[in-house]
Design a protein around this nucleic acid. Structure first.
Length: 172
DNA sequence: TAAGTGCGTCGTT
DNA sequence: AACGACGCACTTA
């Protein structure tokens, strides 16, 4: 219904073996995470000034968590997540995603059932696609009912890579 | 088996 | 009113 903007105050880069991710922070926590993209490298330099120690702490946590996740390990601690950009329904889906352990997968239908809306299967797919914090909010662990990958807002290659690194099974 | 079609369903725009 | 990161039933080959 009401979709507040993430209201990102700080946009900071995270260097990883897979490239430079970009994290966005609002006053409430991590509000966005983007996969490496050659195009937007320049933009991240600007907002370095005026960073609070709080955001610095969050960013350290995000960086550490991201690198762990990319290595297929369980992230130690996450910064507070600001999912206020999402609708009620989307937040419920994202919350369900966070309960899927590394190496495990669920189907879109299982997620739908899990949030008490067994018929909203397709809408769950939409909510996954709207996930502002991929990798750390593990939308990649949601597969089609037949065990195949299903879609991904990033490249399908990323979804495959993330699953493979944490040892999650999926049909080629 | 594999691949393609049609349709129910529902949150979002 | 139209559109999906779906799922299922049901053809065809």
């Amino acid at each position: 219904m009401h979709a507040r903007k993430p209201n990102a105050l700080f946009v900071l880069p995270i260097a990883t073996p897979d490239g430079v991710f970009v994290a966005a922070y609002s006053a409430n926590g991590l509000a966005g995470l983007e996969f490496p993209s050659a195009v937007k490298r320049a933009k991240t330099r600007s907002a370095k000034k005026g960073i609070t120690s709080r955001v610095r702490r969050w960013h350290a946590a995000t960086s550490k968590a991201l690198r762990a996740a990319l290595a297929g390990r369980t992230p130690p601690t996450l910064p507070p997540l600001d999912c206020s950009s999402g609708t009620r329904f989307q937040r419920r889906v994202w919350n369900a995603l966070r309960k899927i352990a590394p190496g495990k997968t669920r189907s879109y239908a299982e997620i739908a059932k899990g949030i008490g809306k067994p018929k909203a299967v397709r809408a769950v797919g939409g909510a996954c696609g709207a996930n502002p914090i991929p990798v750390l909010v593990p939308c990649h662990r949601v597969l089609a009912a037949n065990g195949r990958l299903g879609g991904f807002s990033g490249t399908p290659a990323w979804k495959k890579t993330l699953l493979a690194r944490e040892g999650a099974p999926f049909r080629a």
